[in-house]
């Protein structure tokens, strides 16, 4: 890749950050600025005042999803160079990748069979 391509890549985060800051700044400029009385700060119409802590402990079942996600995330790392090189390599490389994915499908099948994907 050329240096020029990275510049194109850098434009995206800059535009995203710039747009977010612009919109928030615009809202801040345009909005009315009433005094901050307790009544103004309270939940409005459909809100209920919170009781206790707002940070809740997650259910342990979520962790399984995270673990399954991590394995397939690492799989992408291997398939990424394959996808780039595929055009030049032809059928053999294609079959290799199919075997790779099939092996991992066994893993998914195991997780499924064990009920790791079920929400109880």
């Amino acid at each position: 890749m050329l240096q020029q391509d990275y510049l194109t890549l850098a434009v995206y985060p800059l535009v995203i950050i710039g747009f977010s800051v612009f919109v928030l700044a615009l809202a801040w400029v345009l909005r009315a600025k009433p005094p901050k009385t307790p009544l103004k700060q309270s939940a409005y119409e459909c809100g209920v005042p919170t009781r206790g802590e707002t940070w809740v402990r997650f259910r342990v079942a979520y962790y399984l999803y995270a673990l399954v996600f991590v394995v397939f995330d690492v799989e992408i790392i291997f398939l990424y160079p394959w996808a780039v090189a595929l055009k030049r390599l032809g059928l053999f490389a294609y079959i290799e990748a199919i075997i790779f994915i099939l092996i991992l499908l066994v893993a998914l099948g195991y997780a499924w069979k064990e009920g790791a994907l079920e929400w109880k």
Partner: peptide, 29 residues
């Protein structure tokens, strides 16, 4: 990397899949 992985090193490539399989099975268990 892709060409090296799929032409010269196909066995390590598939072993990586097996390794991921073992990791997932162990983690799920």
């Amino acid at each position: 990397l892709g060409e090296a992985l799929l032409t010269r090193l196909p066995i390590p490539f598939e072993i990586a899949a097996v390794l991921l399989l073992v990791a997932l099975v162990g983690a799920v268990m």
